[in-house]
């Protein structure tokens, strides 16, 4: 075993190069002014203060709102699907879970483009509506479009951890609950759901993380005017060129996610 422990060393070196050093550089950027030279570094909180301006705060709140909504929708859909899948016999479950993950094999960009051809003004859905003799509805570049894209892309990340905790659950807990007089509904809320909470939390964390930092989906389905945290960071680095402010926003986002995870883990621990 001791010998094998040495195998971790390349990984440590690798993470140092691609994770730790960029993180330090990000911190450096976030706390300095633009136009610094290597010799003359001036530290400042200016970048963080700037984030408190209403324009940016609104972007943050919008991201948060959309993220939480995505999580909520994914949770309801994902739990339902995971629960249904877990009722089948094991071999069928494996096939169903495979089907859930199939979309993940396809590039996310492609999947998102597919939604454009479905939702756009002369897309699939509107063609269907006009066939039925209904007025076309403009769906692209709305919260609805972004939401649908996010939910569809992130749903597997909710289903899989919940399914795992449901399928490995000892069936005798359910029988014990019936035995003690609880009907199926009471058993679900008092036993099954409670025991699946670790899976739910993992799913919630994953989906929240993904949806609060995504920028491809809002860009494609929300249009150029649709700005979320991910887009804000992207534009600071790519088009505006203000790496300092971009770094500061990234750090704020990272800290928020970190605290969200810590808080949820704490809720989980308190519950058990």
């Amino acid at each position: 075993m001791r010998y094998f422990k040495k195998l971790v060393r390349p990984y440590i070196a690798w993470s140092a190069v691609v994770i730790i050093i960029p993180l330090i550089m990000m911190l450096l950027y976030a706390f300095t002014n633009s136009g610094n030279s290597l010799l003359n570094i001036q530290f400042t909180f200016e970048n963080f203060k700037r984030f408190a301006e209403p324009v940016y705060l609104n972007v943050f709140l919008k991201s948060l709102k959309l993220g939480l909504l995505t999580v909520a929708i994914c949770l309801v859909l994902g739990y339902t699907l995971a629960y249904i899948i877990a009722q089948f016999k094991e071999s069928t479950q494996n096939v169903l879970i495979l089907l859930v993950t199939v979309p993940m094999w396809i590039n996310m960009l492609l999947r998102t483009y597919a939604w454009i051809s479905i939702l756009s003004d002369n897309g699939l859905l509107n063609a269907l509506l006009s066939k039925l003799g209904l007025e076309p509805v403009s769906m692209m570049y709305t919260d609805f479009a972004v939401m649908i894209g996010q939910v569809c892309d992130f749903l597997p990340f909710m289903i899989i951890p919940i399914h795992t905790s449901l399928s490995k659950m000892d069936k005798s807990f359910i029988e014990a609950s019936y035995d003690l007089g609880a009907n199926p509904v009471q058993t679900f809320f008092k036993v099954v759901f409670k025991l699946s909470i670790p899976g739910v939390l993992n799913g919630v964390i994953m989906v929240f993380l993904l949806s609060i930092s995504t920028f491809v989906i809002p860009k494609l389905l929300g249009g150029g005017q649709y700005v979320l945290m991910g887009n804000l960071i992207e534009s600071q680095f790519v088009s505006v060129g203000d790496w300092n402010f971009g770094s500061a926003i990234s750090i704020i986002l990272a800290v928020i996610i970190l605290f969200a995870i810590r808080w949820m883990k704490k809720v989980d621990a308190a519950d058990n």
Binding site: S172, F173, E175, A176, S177, D179, L180, N272
Partner: peptide, 13 residues
């Protein structure tokens, strides 16, 4: 009727 299960099946939560 009530049952005492083989592995007790006490609710861990």
């Amino acid at each position: 009727v009530n049952t005492v299960f083989q592995k007790y099946a006490l609710f861990p939560h």
